Simulated assay, not measured.
Amino acid sequence: YTSQRCSHVNCSFTHDDNRDGDEFECLKCGREYHADYNAAKNIARKLLQNWHKSGSGGATSHLALKSGTLNVNGIYTPTTV
């Protein structure tokens, strides 16, 4: 359900009627994303949470997305151009 769950850190609402083709719109907070991008952010957050729980290396965890980075707390930092 990664493309049906809102990837915004303060929402995470899941509903099976919030996708229209490639578009995702959260029925709770109203945010709109490309459905694949929304899913990628949800997967990245889950990976970071699992890596953080494993305690591997003790390094700060960030995942790079094309448009920015996502840290273990779900905070998204857009890339500045």
Rank of each mutant, 00 (worst) to 15 (best):
Y1V: 10
S3H: 08
S3L: 05
R5I: 08
R5K: 13
R5T: 15
C6F: 00
S7G: 06
S7D: 06
S7P: 02
S7L: 04
S7R: 03
H8M: 14
H8I: 13
V9T: 13
N10W: 11
N10C: 00
C11Q: 06
C11L: 08
C11N: 02
C11W: 11
S12T: 05
F13W: 07
F13I: 02
H15Q: 09
H15M: 00
H15F: 06
H15W: 04
H15K: 05
D16A: 09
D17R: 11
D17I: 02
N18Y: 03
D20G: 03
D20N: 13
G21W: 04
G21Q: 05
G21L: 05
D22C: 10
D22Y: 11
E23A: 10
F24Y: 03
F24R: 04
E25I: 08
C26G: 13
L27D: 06
L27I: 04
K28Y: 10
K28N: 15
G30M: 10
G30I: 11
G30E: 03
G30C: 03
G30V: 11
G30R: 11
R31V: 07
R31C: 02
R31Y: 04
E32K: 15
E32F: 00
Y33A: 01
Y33M: 08
H34C: 07
H34D: 04
H34W: 08
A35N: 04
A35R: 09
A35S: 15
A35E: 04
Y37T: 12
N38I: 06
N38Q: 03
A39D: 00
A39Y: 05
A39F: 06
A40L: 02
A40H: 02
K41G: 07
K41D: 08
N42C: 10
N42I: 09
I43E: 13
I43D: 07
A44I: 06
A44C: 12
A44G: 08
R45A: 13
R45W: 02
K46A: 15
L47S: 07
L47W: 05
L47F: 12
L48A: 14
Q49K: 15
N50P: 00
N50S: 15
W51T: 07
W51K: 09
W51R: 14
H52L: 14
H52Q: 15
S54D: 09
S54N: 04
S56D: 13
S56R: 13
G57K: 03
G58M: 09
A59Q: 14
A59E: 14
T60N: 10
S61T: 08
H62Y: 11
L63N: 01
L63K: 02
A64K: 03
A64I: 06
L65P: 07
L65Q: 05
L65C: 09
K66V: 14
S67E: 14
S67G: 13
G68L: 12
T69A: 12
L70Q: 01
L70C: 02
L70F: 01
L70I: 13
L70N: 03
V72S: 10
N73Q: 14
G74F: 06
I75P: 00
Y76G: 00
T77C: 05
T77Q: 10
T77G: 01
T77I: 03
P78S: 12
P78F: 00
P78T: 08
P78R: 14
T79H: 15
T80C: 02
T80W: 07
V81G: 11
V81W: 00
V81H: 14
V81M: 04
